[in-house]
């Protein structure tokens, strides 16, 4: 049986892991290579790296980091943040990333999803959606959550799927960093709308939150950052707990 995946996310800035709360108050959280190795040993099913380095000159640092990561890690990993073109995607994939994740760039130019899917296959295109509840409507936000768009989240998810995305990574900004649980209603709606895997992100605080998201929605994976970096819960604890509930887990 296909297993539900537990995915630690490492936000990368200038080659270091960082963590912010609701996309703000960024603080240092360690060496990405060491963390990645630790997570892989603890049973992480995949890793996600999101580069939040804003400047172009630092992009080369990311490609080097991806190369090092690919030589050390024996589980799949996704790299996102600042991938704005087919060439950006190619550089990261050639360096050894299994998937790339698109966010603002896909909103700005949706055809980019199709271009990358055609060049490297849908399986390596993750569309990351940052969403926030605004007056009872889940809206899509871009530019690291700073800019609201007119897009409705379910509509955008469907469009991304139709354009060739192989997976969606849905982060609720209302829940991110809160540690009060995942945004179940919107995750449920999005996962029921598209026929590709959906990764739940934002709000994990306890092992019970992982159980909730797998029992109450059809998401394929759940992602967390801070709670794993700070060892609030570790991955192997989450996984053994989910196994006791008969949720399919590796």
């Amino acid at each position: 049986m296909l297993k539900k995946r537990i995915i630690p996310c490492l936000d990368i800035k200038d080659g270091r892991t960082v963590k912010g709360v609701q996309f703000q108050n960024i603080k240092d959280a360690g060496d990405p290579l060491e963390l990645a190795k630790r997570y892989s040993d603890e049973g992480a099913d995949e890793l996600v790296f999101l580069d939040i380095t804003a400047t172009l000159e630092k992009r080369q640092t990311l490609v080097k980091l991806v190369e090092q990561m690919a030589s050390k890690i024996r589980i799949p990993f996704t790299v996102g943040g600042g991938i704005n073109s087919l060439a950006d995607a190619e550089a990261v994939i050639r360096a050894g990333a299994d998937k790339i994740s698109l966010n603002s760039a896909a909103v700005k130019r949706p055809e980019l999803i199709t271009e990358i899917a055609e060049a490297f296959g849908s399986q390596c295109v993750v569309v990351a959606i940052d969403t926030k509840l605004v007056e009872d409507q889940w809206k899509v936000f871009v530019n690291a959550g700073k800019t609201e768009t007119p897009l409705n989240t379910v509509d955008w998810a469907k469009r991304a799927f139709n354009l060739g995305a192989g997976e969606l990574l849905l982060t609720s900004m209302n829940h991110d960093g809160s540690r009060n649980g995942f945004a179940l209603p919107i995750l449920k709606d999005v996962a029921a709308t598209v026929n590709i895997p959906v990764i739940a992100s934002g709000g994990a605080g306890t092992r019970e939150h992982f159980a909730e998201v797998f029992e109450q929605t059809s998401v394929s994976a759940a992602l967390a950052a801070g709670i794993f970096h700070e060892s609030v819960v570790n991955i192997s604890e989450v996984k053994s707990y989910l196994k006791t509930l008969n949720i399919p887990i590796r």
Binding site: M1, L2, K3, K4, R5, D45, S122, Q123, G166, E167, N195, I196, P197, S220, A221, R250
Partner: peptide
């Protein structure tokens, strides 16, 4: 078949 979630992505037995 298109009725399932495709790609088959993840860990399986």
């Amino acid at each position: 078949p298109a009725n399932g979630i495709v790609p088959h992505m993840g860990w399986n037995t």
